[in-house]
Design a protein around this nucleic acid. Structure first.
Length: 348
DNA sequence: AATACGGGGCT
DNA sequence: AGCCCAGTATT
């Protein structure tokens, strides 16, 4: 039996039952693939179900507002995926008459669709012979064939794509692509892979050479930057709260947050007072208190956000203030959503 | 060729 | 604390 046949056989007996496995609707496959980029199935699944219910077809998604889409996406991370998802839905409806392109090459033109996702949609929906190479596939191939070329080097990306193409199953590309990913997720897992009962263990190079824990090789460790966030939870006389939308580049684009005062180091009361006075012109009756004595550390891939929430009770009346119960309608980062939750439980 | 981009789960 | 996850876009 060939490599790909063993993978397919393993898949037939071990695959999880997942909603996107029972359809070839490009809209559904596309939706699942975008959501699962750099995201575990367990984390993405509830979002897939929510989106299916809210937007049963691409037209529904295209007709939604970006705000609605971001709100449903809240908590899943990598929010450019949501913005691109929405833009692509509009493009599919307006430029393609509601029909997704049906080739790998054409699919690559869609925003948020790269090599992996185009291959996945083309193979799963249209039986095009394109191998998928995701994190799972890198791991399975690197171990089984004993390849130590870094998977994220330019030459590595090219090498593994070619290797994947050579060993793919051309009779059933649709199941095979899902099978090798599932195999990587369940059997050939990053930590504690189940080599003892693996159907490929007699011919796995990494296992024979005791290299399983060393493969795949990955370069470029991410260095984490520290940032100091001071969120100003500003209340007016009616307990309305100021909220603003993040614009431009950087994290959380188009999501909402409290007015932010970022500092180079941990801030203190007098610095906050000074900032408030010079930026908001607050009166002397304003009460300021620190909500969290210890800084909340919110961890992103490339930065740790050391955060203090300052409660600022003013004697003003905000024109653009938001009632506490209305805050839930806005798409916000998890850091803000958590604070809103504690506000609702403790303050009012 | 590097880096930015979330959040959560596992070791 | 570090690594990884059905990667892509930008610099």
């Amino acid at each position: 039996m060939s490599f790909s046949e063993k993978i397919l056989l393993w898949y037939s007996g071990n695959k999880r039952s997942l909603p996107w496995r029972s359809t070839r609707d490009p809209y559904k496959i596309w939706l699942s693939e975008i959501m699962l980029q750099q995201t575990r199935v367990a984390q993405g699944l509830p979002y897939y179900l929510k989106f299916n219910e809210a937007f049963p077809a691409v037209e529904h998604l295209a007709n939604a507002s970006e705000e609605q889409v971001l709100k449903l996406w809240q908590g899943l991370g990598y929010y450019s995926r949501a913005r691109n998802l929405h833009a692509t839905a509009k493009m599919v409806v307006e430029a393609y008459g509601g029909h997704f392109p049906n080739t790998y090459k054409e699919l690559l033109n869609l925003k948020g669709v790269g090599d992996y996702t185009a291959s996945a949609i083309a193979s799963i929906c249209f039986d095009e012979l394109q191998p998928v190479v995701d994190g799972n596939v890198y791991r399975v191939l690197a171990r089984y064939f004993g390849v130590d070329t870094p998977i994220n080097s330019t030459s590595g990306v090219k090498y593994f794509k070619q290797l994947a193409r050579e060993v793919m199953n051309t009779e059933n590309i649709r199941d095979y692509n899902q099978a090798i990913m599932e195999f990587g997720a369940i059997q050939c897992a990053p930590k504690n892979p189940k080599c003892s009962n693996c159907p490929l263990n007699e011919s796995c190079v990494a296992l024979q050479k005791n290299l399983v824990d060393l493969l795949p090789v990955k370069i470029n460790k991410t260095k984490v930057k520290k940032r100091y966030f001071n969120y100003l939870v500003m209340l007016d006389t009616e307990n309305q709260i100021k909220l603003q939308q993040r614009r431009g580049k950087g994290i959380w684009q188009n999501l909402w947050e409290f007015p932010l005062f970022e500092t180079k180091t941990e801030s203190n009361m007098s610095e906050i007072k000074h900032h408030l006075t010079s930026n908001f012109g607050l009166g002397s009756s304003t009460e300021i208190s620190l909500h969290n004595e210890d800084q909340i550390v919110h961890k992103l891939s490339h930065q740790h956000l050391y955060t203090k929430f300052w409660i600022v009770k003013t004697d003003a009346r905000f024109d653009d203030g938001i009632a506490l119960r209305k805050l839930d309608e806005f798409p916000v980062p998890v850091l803000i959503a958590d604070l809103i939750k504690t506000l609702k439980n403790s303050y009012f």
